[in-house]
């Protein structure tokens, strides 16, 4: 049974709350992780570690950004690095795992 999208968002809300000490209500799909939610670069390590623990898969360095656009660099993608984009990445990873097990 695949994890519903709403559950992914809920889990991401809890992760951001702990990692960035912000209210879960601020963790909406359009929120940009750097500019809107106030992350700094070391927070991304923290968030990545927590996503790995919460969803049970490993994430390579830069993998989330590459999932947004593999041809663009970090600075260009900073504004597109949102909660929604991260949730879509998690969805994609979970689906790949699901297919792998099928």
């Amino acid at each position: 049974m695949p994890i519903p999208d709403v559950e992914i968002l809920n889990k991401l809300g809890a992760i951001m709350h702990v990692a960035l000490r912000i209210p879960e209500a601020e963790v909406i799909p359009d929120a940009r992780i750097f500019d809107d939610l106030g992350a700094e670069s070391i927070d991304i390590l923290d968030i990545r570690f927590r996503i790995e623990e919460a969803f049970g898969f490993k994430i390579d360095e830069g993998e989330i950004m590459r999932s947004i656009d593999p041809d663009k660099g970090f600075e260009e993608l900073k504004d597109q690095f949102t909660i929604g984009a991260t949730a879509a990445f998690i969805r994609q990873k979970l689906d790949q795992l699901e297919q792998g097990h099928a």
């Binding site: 070391i42 390590l45 923290d46 990545r48 490993k58």
Partner: peptide, 8 residues
């Protein structure tokens, strides 16, 4: 250690 210790 790499997998389990928090990166910060």
């Amino acid at each position: 250690t790499l997998d389990m210790v928090h990166p910060l």
